[in-house]
Nucleic acid binder design. Structure first.
Lengths: 178, 178
DNA sequence: CACTTTTGTAAGTGAGTACTCACTTTTCTT
DNA sequence: AAGAAAAGTGAGTACTCACTTACAAAAGTG
């Protein structure tokens, strides 16, 4: 049942990521999902509601990734997993995260709970504890730096063309934390 | 004469940065500039033309900053200047750079010369030469890392509320390059 | 001054937008 | 099988948008 609902979500995700939320008409979403425009509103109430549904899914996926890192026993392995996170996320769910990043700059979504703050914060705590266990003198600052790197890394990966995932930089980065 | 032209540019810059290009109607630009809507089109032909004018200005400003760094005699001072660049740019021209970053994710502007590629590339070359002079074993990779950091730093500075510029992270980062 | 050009305005216009509604078809439940 | 609920349609509707047009006031120039 409601397999068309999933088609709408897929099309909306792809188009929002590619064209941006405002530049994507609901008519095009319906057309590319092979569905009538009215159905979009039956399932998601409004264009904003459609966005909400997409972002709820994104939150779910992030949650799982963070939980997996939290489960790692070795602190160094945790740090390395954090560094690998952007590559892992963007490899599979490119459009998802492209959308997340483009959203950051839209006032509309700046205050709300859409920012990946909850799981992001948890990740920061995990990394801070890992740095502490590894004996770094200033673990908080190290985490601050690491967060910066993750941000930049994600940006860069998204700016590059699809398949060309360059691991040398990630490896180089990991070699700095031994 | 044409002082109203400047008013239009200012209002457009502010609104594009705040709401995004697509979500900003030309009517609002005109209203906030205290000008009739028709004048926007007399001076800039189209909404896209208005954007072009804004981006041409951005390019000018970036050019000056890069030239100033190129002129520094000490390689270490150059690296530090590069690290300080986001803070310097965003301190003065916040809206300008917020717009630049939000544009990165819009398909419309992805292929064109709008990306700060020209001066950005020059900056990368300067940094690479500086790392080489300082005797780093892998200067290209170091530059790659530094670019990542700048990207992340800019993102973070733009996400934070206006005045609260935290220099501890920048200082910590500079301490890593001595 | 006369004139041309530039700068400005107010009131449109047609295309495209998010969303609704009356209705039909499919699926679930018993 | 019968009735209810859910899924789906497609033609509207009210409205907003970027842009145009007809015209007026300043400003520049001889």
């Amino acid at each position: 049942m409601a397999k068309k609902k999933a088609l709408i979500l897929e099309a909306a995700l792809r188009l929002f990521a590619e064209l941006g939320f405002d530049a994507t008409p609901t008519s095009q979403i319906a057309r590319e999902a092979g569905v009538s425009e009215g159905l979009v509103f039956r399932h998601f109430t409004s264009k904003d509601g459609l966005m909400d549904a997409i972002l709820a899914l994104a939150d779910e996926r992030m949650k799982k990734q963070v939980a997996a890192i939290a489960r790692l026993p070795e602190p160094l392995a945790q740090i390395h997993a954090v560094i690998e996170l952007p590559g892992r996320l963007l490899g599979e769910e490119r459009e998802f995260w492209k959308l997340q990043f483009s959203l950051k700059w839209q006032k509309k979504y700046r205050n709300q709970s859409y920012q990946p703050s909850a799981h992001h914060l948890e990740l920061v705590q995990i990394a801070a504890q890992a740095f502490e266990k590894l004996g770094y003198p200033e673990p908080e600052k190290e985490v601050g730096l690491l967060v910066l790197l993750l941000d930049g890394l994600s940006n860069q990966l998204l700016s590059q063309p699809e398949g060309s995932f360059d691991t040398t930089l990630v490896d180089f980065l990991k070699s700095k934390y031994q």
